[in-house]
C-alpha cells in the first residue's frame, strides 16, 4: 500500500476495464515520474469527454453534436440500417469501407445475468426509425456469441411483421487463415453454414 493520493490513483485506474493492479501501478508511477507528461491536458480531455461527447440522438453512436457524423452525411444510403451492439462495432465496420448505409447502436445485448432485457436496449428507437418506410433492409450485426444471437433472434421476430428485409452477418472461417488452425467450434459452425457452389 502506498500513501494517500498515489494509492487512490492506483485504485482508480484499477477500476478501469482491462487494467489490473500491476498496470494501474505502472501508469500511476509513469505519470508521477515523467516530467514531460502533460497532466492538465489529460485532465482537460477527461472533463471534455463528459461534457461534450454525447450519444447520437438517431443511432446511438458517439457524437459531439446532437447527431453523429454518419447520420449527418447525405452520401449515406438511408434505406440500409446495420444494427450493432456497441459504438466500437461501428468503427470496426467503418474500417471495411464496404458498408455505406446507416447504423443503429443498441447499447449491448440481451443478457438476463447482466440485467439487460429488450427494454434496456435502444430497440424502441429502432422501431421509430423504421416506421416511415424509408428503410428497406436491416442488417443484424450483433456479436456471434449466445447473447448476440439471442438479440438477433429477438429482433428478427420483432421485425417479422414489418415489410422489411432482415439479414444477419454470416459466421464461419476467418479469411486469410489456415483451415488447419481453425478451432473446432468455428470449423463446426462453418460446416453448418456451408453454401452451395455448384449443383
Amino acid at each position: 500500500m502506498y500513501e494517500g493520493i498515489v494509492q487512490e490513483l492506483i485504485d482508480e485506474f484499477g477500476r478501469l476495464p482491462g487494467i489490473g493492479p500491476k498496470s494501474a501501478q505502472r501508469i500511476a508511477f509513469h505519470i508521477l515520474q515523467t516530467e514531460t507528461f502533460d497532466v492538465s491536458r489529460l485532465a482537460e480531455l477527461l472533463t471534455e469527454l463528459r461534457e461534450k461527447v454525447h450519444f447520437c440522438e438517431i443511432c446511438g453512436n458517439v457524437a459531439e453534436q446532437q447527431t453523429c457524423s454518419i447520420c449527418r452525411d447525405p452520401r449515406r444510403t438511408p434505406t440500409l440500417i446495420c444494427v450493432v451492439e456497441e459504438a466500437k462495432d461501428v468503427v470496426a465496420i467503418e474500417r471495411t469501407r464496404e458498408f455505406r448505409g446507416l447504423y443503429h447502436v443498441l447499447g449491448g445485448a440481451i443478457s438476463p445475468i447482466d440485467g439487460i432485457g429488450p427494454d434496456e436496449l435502444r430497440i424502441r428507437q429502432l422501431l421509430q426509425r423504421l416506421a416511415d418506410g424509408t428503410v428497406q433492409e436491416v442488417i443484424i450485426a450483433t456479436d456471434p456469441n449466445l447473447e448476440g444471437e439471442a438479440t438477433a433472434t429477438y429482433l428478427s421476430r420483432l421485425l417479422q411483421t414489418l415489410e422489411i428485409r432482415v439479414t444477419r452477418l454470416a459466421s464461419g472461417l476467418p479469411v486469410g487463415g489456415d483451415l488447419e488452425y481453425a478451432d473446432e467450434v468455428t470449423l463446426g459452425r462453418a460446416f453448418e453454414g456451408r453454401t452451395i457452389v455448384s449443383n
Binding site: P118, E149, A150
Partner: peptide, 13 residues
C-alpha cells in the same frame, strides 16, 4: 410482456 418474449428466445436456444 417483454420478459415473456425473451423467455421464448432462451427457450429456443
Amino acid at each position: 410482456e417483454s420478459q415473456l418474449t425473451t423467455l421464448e428466445i432462451w427457450d429456443d436456444k
